[in-house]
Amino acid sequence: MVYLQTKFPQFPEYTIFISLYRGVQKEVIEGVKTGLISGDEKYDFCFLNTTHIISVEQLYNAVHKALLNDLNESKVAKTLNTEIILNLSPINNIGDALRRFGVNENQSDVIVIKVLPSGTNEAGLDKLNNSVIELLGGSSVSNPTLNDDIIFSDLVDMKKLKKVYKLNDAKIDFSQSIQNDISKLVIACCHLRGC
């Protein structure tokens, strides 16, 4: 049972669930996409690919900003899940954001995020995690801990990330382990989406 759960100090009414699944089959992901488009309730989650994810912090920021926009009635997307995806993007275009950050059938790593009422207890979260594992293929899918180490070593594509967030001219020594610095730049970039 490995998933991340957190509460944001400004939104005590929600619990945030984030988890990583690896080894998801192509057909399953295609099914997820279809389900998302048709609005099937089974797929009421935020599904992400891992290419442009640099840190857990980046994910939390996107969720937080989405909740803030929801509160201020300034969401661009119709659903919270899509708003989260949009808040990972430097460009204010939903289609583009979904393509880049949304689930991708050519990749077997999937991050799933869900915003739940804060009353949800441990058992409820376990149940949720299990249901996602089932949804994504059951026993063939692994569910390792999502943390900054695994992101940096296994999941992120730095070249693509730098391109998307236009960080190639940033004065950072990319040869050093500067995950934290890059994460902060990416987050600031997201906050300037559409500005």
């Binding site: 920021n61 937080h64 900003k65 803030l68 201020n72 300034s74 960080l167 001219d169 940033a170 004065k171 950072i172 902060k184 730049l185 987050i187 600031a188 970039c189 906050h191 300037l192 500005c195």
Partner: peptide, 27 residues
Amino acid sequence: IGEVKFMFKLAKAGIRAPRVVSTDYFN
């Protein structure tokens, strides 16, 4: 927004300044 943009550019240029954590432009 202008201030956040400036801070982002500073960060990109490697000029030491506080880094942005979060924003609420509406308020």
